[in-house]
C-alpha cells in the first residue's frame, strides 16, 4: 500500500500539489484523471521520486518517509526498484536492442544472470505481442510497439507497482488500442497499477478506483461507478468535455 499524507510540491510560484492525502491499494488499478496541468503527473512522479515533494509523509508498504527531511538514497533506490514508471514518450534506450532494453535493469540493478534475464525478456515480449523483435533497435519500432516494449521493460523488474504516465497520449487511436489491450490484460493479473490517462473509455474499463485531480487538489477519490455517475457539477463538466456526449 502506498499512502501519501499532506504532500506538498511547488515549482517556483506554482503550487503543484496542495496537501494531498491519498492511498493506492495493492492488487488494484487506480486511474488518475484531471485536466492538463492539474498536478496528476506530478503526483504520479512523486511516487517514485522523479519529483521530490517538499513536505508530507510517504508510507511505502509500512516504511514511512518524512519528506520534510532529505530522503536517504537507499530508501529512494529501494522504492524505485519496486515501482516502475512507464513514460508518455517511452524513453527506451536507443543504443540498446529491444531485448537489452528489457534485461538492462534486471542484470545491472537486480544482478540477475544474463541468461535468466534474457529468457524472461523473451517471455515478456511474447506477452506484449512482440515476439521476434528481440534484436531490433527502438528506432525500428512504431510508437505502439515502443510503448509495449517499455511496459515489458517495467514488468521485467517485477515491481510491486507499475506507474504509467499518459502511456498512450503520443499514439494514434489504432496504436493506442494495442497498448491499452496489453494494459487490460495486465490489470486482470491483479497487479498494482497507477495510471494517468486522458482516455475516459479506457479509465472506465480498467479502473478499480478513480482519483480526480484539479489545481493540485484531489476533488474525487472513489469507485468508478460513483465517478461516472457523480452529481458533482465539476466532475460532470470534465467527463462531458472529455467525451462525445454533448456533440
Amino acid at each position: 500500500m502506498l499512502k501519501l499524507t499532506n504532500i506538498n510540491k511547488t515549482f517556483g510560484d506554482h503550487h503543484a500539489l496542495k496537501d494531498i492525502n491519498v492511498t493506492f491499494n495493492e492488487h488494484a488499478t487506480t486511474v488518475i484523471l484531471g485536466p492538463s496541468g492539474s498536478g496528476k503527473s506530478t503526483l504520479l512522479r512523486s511516487l517514485n521520486f522523479l519529483e521530490q515533494p517538499e513536505s508530507g509523509l510517504y508510507d511505502f508498504d509500512g516504511t514511512i518517509l518524512d519528506l520534510n527531511k532529505p530522503v536517504a538514497d537507499k530508501d529512494i533506490f529501494r522504492i524505485r526498484r519496486e515501482t516502475e514508471m512507464v513514460f508518455q514518450n517511452y524513453n527506451l534506450f536507443p543504443h540498446l536492442t529491444i531485448v537489452k532494453n528489457i534485461t538492462e535493469g534486471p542484470v545491472q540493478v537486480l544482478k540477475q544472470n544474463k541468461a535468466t534475464a534474457t529468457e524472461k525478456a523473451h517471455e515478456l515480449l511474447a506477452k506484449v505481442g512482440l515476439a521476434g523483435n528481440e534484436n531490433k533497435f527502438p528506432s525500428q519500432l512504431s510508437g505502439g510497439q515502443a510503448q509495449r516494449v517499455a511496459i515489458a521493460r517495467s514488468l521485467a523488474m517485477d515491481p510491486k507497482y507499475i506507474l504509467l504516465d499518459e502511456p498512450t497520449s503520443a499514439l494514434d487511436p489504432e496504436l493506442e488500442l494495442e497498448v491499452l489491450k496489453v494494459l487490460v490484460e495486465i490489470a486482470k493479473e491483479k497487479r498494482s497499477m497507477i495510471i494517468v490517462t486522458h482516455n475516459m473509455a479506457f479509465a472506465q474499463k480498467i479502473a478499480d478506483k478513480i482519483i480526480f485531480v484539479e489545481n493540485g487538489e484531489i476533488l474525487f477519490d472513489g469507485s468508478k461507478e460513483t465517478f461516472f455517475h457523480s452529481d458533482n457539477q465539476r466532475i460532470n463538466d470534465f467527463i462531458s468535455a472529455m467525451t462525445f456526449t454533448d456533440i
Partner: peptide, 8 residues
C-alpha cells in the same frame, strides 16, 4: 529518468 526508475 528511465535509468532512475529502473533503480540505477
Amino acid at each position: 529518468e528511465a535509468a532512475s526508475t529502473l533503480g540505477m
